[in-house]
């Protein structure tokens, strides 16, 4: 297959995949009376900017909070999960199997039960409605995933590589820092990516632990349009669109950087 044909196939696949996203954008521009038109309008013919007007007036400050929470979660997750994954994969500690087992099970606890448990802890610690509190809570979704992914990927690192470093007189910490981490770039990116995505789209923790704060993430902004009896759907969808634009740009940039890094690595081999 020639490259241009692949690009065309890729474009088609992406279009199919993103159709629901398009539909969301479509609804965000639609007037109330056209929302359930039968047959549905494929384009917002008599579009309205009402939804966006509401969002741009009210939601922009929250984007910053979301960004901060997302990046904080990424940092915390990698710091906690990378060494743990390394230890499980290479040092094979006593109870390592049990630990990864607990991590697996931990992910089964329904988010709302976790959130209710945290509420009591946070209230006593006084970190309700704070950004660090939310980062800590969001990291609990990503850390088990991170540890398992790091374990799976790091067990693929040849033992000779780490042994060579030890022979050179490097301690475990140094080996980890200057040998293991650099070769695990792929898994770090994967874990960071998901940590970011989870934190960005989290709803349950944000609403339970940060519902009343001044620094609310943008997902909670959607609540402003879910009234007691009525939902303002164009504004809800508009919030989601506005919230996903900066994150999408970030993703595309991040992936550029990753692709470059990978190719550079390949040439060195």
């Amino acid at each position: 297959m020639r490259s241009p044909i692949k690009t065309v196939i890729g474009l088609v696949l992406t279009a199919v995949m993103l159709f629901p996203v398009y539909w969301m954008i479509n609804v965000s521009f639609t007037r109330d009376q056209d929302m359930r038109a039968d047959p549905p309008h494929l384009f917002p013919v008599d579009g309205t900017l009402e939804g966006y007007r509401a969002v741009l007036d009210q939601q922009l400050p929250y984007l910053g909070t979301s960004l901060l929470v997302g990046l904080g979660t990424v940092a915390l997750t990698v710091v906690l999960a990378a060494p743990a994954g390394y230890a499980l994969a290479k040092l094979r500690p006593v109870g390592g199997g049990a630990l990864s087992f607990v991590l697996l099970i931990a992910q089964m606890i329904p988010g709302i039960i976790m959130a209710m448990g945290f509420y009591a802890i946070y209230l006593n610690l006084g970190v309700l409605n704070s950004i660090p509190g939310l980062i800590l809570a969001d990291s609990t979704i990503a850390v088990p995933f991170g540890v398992l992914i790091f374990t799976a990927f790091m067990s693929g690192i040849p033992d000779e590589l780490t042994q060579a470093a030890v022979v050179d007189g490097a301690g475990r910490l140094r080996t980890f820092w200057s040998v293991v981490l650099p070769v695990s770039r792929n898994s770090i990116v994967t874990v960071s990516l998901f940590a970011f995505l989870w934190a960005w789209s989290d709803f349950i923790f944000a609403s339970t632990l940060d519902g009343g704060g001044d620094h609310r993430p943008i997902t909670l902004g959607i609540y402003q349009y879910i009234g007691n009896n009525n939902q303002q759907w164009n504004a809800i969808m508009a919030t989601a669109v506005v919230a996903s634009i900066p994150a999408t740009i970030l993703l595309i940039i991040a992936q550029r950087y990753v692709a470059a890094g990978v190719t550079a690595g390949a040439i060195k081999d």
Binding site: K6, T7, G10, L11, L13, T14, M17, L18, P20, V21, M24, L193, L197, W200, S201, F203, T219, I222, A240, A243, S244, A247, T248, L251, I252, A254, Q255, R256, A259
Partner: peptide, 16 residues
Amino acid sequence: LSGTLRALFLVPWLLP
């Protein structure tokens, strides 16, 4: 465009 398209596949995850 393979990289960009692949990144776009992640957009569904950004939505609550």
